[in-house]
Amino acid sequence: MSTTTTTRPVAAEQSLATSTKFRTFAIVFGVATAVLYVLCDMGGWPLFTYHPGTDRVEFGWAPAVRDRGPAMYWYGWIATSMLGAAVLGGLATLLPENTAKRIPLALVWLVPVLAVPVLIYSLMFFWTK
């Protein structure tokens, strides 16, 4: 019985690590998360807004309410970018294997590196204040 419970996760891990569909999903998910997150940050597109002062959640972008604390968009940006990236990653697994294999693997580190100066620029308010 103990053999069954210990081998199952290992087998699942091994099948995931050899799956070409998971490879395609993971590449597209990683790249898309970086791109969508930068777009969400610069465009102000949170899936929801959290008001920590009142512990209230509003769908989409919402301004801070006067005398009730700040509004937080970071959680909403994560939700937008991760959900969007998961959808794109899922769609990418439907591509024929030959096409999926042509997605350059270098994008998984190149896009996040390129996102850094863009994010620094998006925070210009803090550097120039």
Binding site: S81, P112, L119
Partner: peptide
């Protein structure tokens, strides 16, 4: 900037794991 970068890092974990496996 830290919050932004660690979130992007979070999204990279599946492919990072795959490449190391």
């Amino acid at each position: 900037l830290k919050e932004h970068l660690v979130t992007i890092g979070l999204g990279l974990l599946p492919i990072y794991w795959y490449l190391w496996k």
